[in-house]
Design a protein around this nucleic acid. Structure first.
Lengths: 214, 214
DNA sequence: GCAAAATATTTAACTATATGGTTAAACCGA
DNA sequence: TCGGTTTAACCATATAGTTAAATATTTTGC
């Protein structure tokens, strides 16, 4: 009677195809805007195969989001460890997040919609991934404060500033640029960032967080 | 043959009920997640009335988003004018945005989902609203640079930082707090902001943007 | 090594419900 | 009674999810 589902943590070829198609489709159209039929079509498999391999829409979505967030959560601590001082660690953290977003272009839209809906479809395991990333940031900010190099900032606000800057810039810039009727001075200004997005955000956040004698 | 639709810019009682119900529903469930039937039910009118009064789902959505963004776009310039120096103007701008978000709680989720989907359902008129808000910010940053009080920042990145911080903090904090299993130190830290969200963001952004002799 | 049985995987066809949108009739105030 | 407004009933399509049969693949008996 117990029809055990396939082990998702080590997906086979078919399951992998499905997850990739699902990731792209969820990223483009969101949870509600995505139909299971469309995912199956893009994966090139029958819908029943999709249900056999992975499960219903919720399970599919949960696996997609965890697959992408889980990797990030696992490697953030290591990336931060390359820095010695709190400043270096915070910079490494921001560069890591920006790089993760670069390498996982489906993450920003999925995360933003998840935030927008109050985590309506956010599976527990994904929330745990987020929490472990946040914990790393919390550690950096606390160390910086103890050593007297950071202001007494609100950690979650710093988090919001980092993630918010990166996500809004990444996703908002293409929208702005697609509005061909916009006054030129609004568009031309930002064509090229002086550095990478991560570096720019790191510079600004560090200025906001570091303690200076003025 | 031309069945002229009702004038939306000055909605009557029934139309107003529908628009309010639509705003709440779109904010909660997003464009795709919202059914016209649900809006009609929440507005307490027949679905055909909704189509008669306003039009199809797209038109309904466009009116909702413009109704809320239009007000903001119209009053931002005036709010900023209360400041004399670029610093004061930038602070006034950020406080205004934070206040607008406070007063229009449906705006953040709608905007975030719009950004996430690349402006998929964003009507031209709403994009114009956004542009006029952005133009005000651009003016402040340029004046600050000319007067030598601001660094040579990337305007759209400053925009992303302001909007991103406010939206992510506003929407992200409740999610974080709802994860009852989270380690206490992650949650307890941020319970109370020292000031309002707008003030906190303004402090941090100004530190990031202002030019100091160091 | 190999046919046959057992198991794992995929598929077309199906169901029940939800959805966006329409229609023609009923309602209602001037 | 006339024009604007609202309504119940309706339609075509889309959707999440299921089923039983077909097709691969693996295991077993010899």
């Amino acid at each position: 009677m117990f029809r055990r589902k396939i082990d998702i943590s080590n997906p086979g070829k078919t399951a992998q195809k499905i997850l990739i198609a699902a990731r792209k489709t969820f990223a483009r159209h969101g949870y509600s805007g995505t139909s299971v039929d469309e995912i199956a079509r893009r994966a090139g498999v029958n819908k029943a195969t999709l249900y056999y391999q992975i499960g219903d829409k919720d399970t599919l979505y949960a696996n997609v989001i965890h697959q992408v967030l889980g990797n990030i959560a696992q490697s953030v601590a290591q990336a931060v460890a390359t820095g010695k001082t709190p400043e270096e660690k915070l910079r490494a953290y921001i560069l890591f997040v920006a790089d993760a977003v670069d390498k996982n272009p489906e993450l920003p839209p999925i995360m933003m919609r998840e935030v927008a809906s109050g985590g309506a479809h956010l599976p527990r395991v994904a929330a745990e991934d987020m929490a472990s990333v946040l914990t790393v940031l919390l550690g950096i900010l606390e160390e910086g404060k103890e050593k007297g190099v950071f202001n007494d900032v609100v950690p979650f606000l710093v988090h919001a500033m980092i993630i918010g800057s990166i996500l809004i810039f990444k996703l908002g810039a293409p929208i702005k640029d697609s509005q061909i009727w916009l006054p030129e001075d609004l568009k031309a200004r930002d064509k090229k960032l002086p550095g990478t997005l991560g570096e720019e955000v790191a510079d600004m956040v560090l200025k906001a967080v570091k303690k200076y004698d003025r």
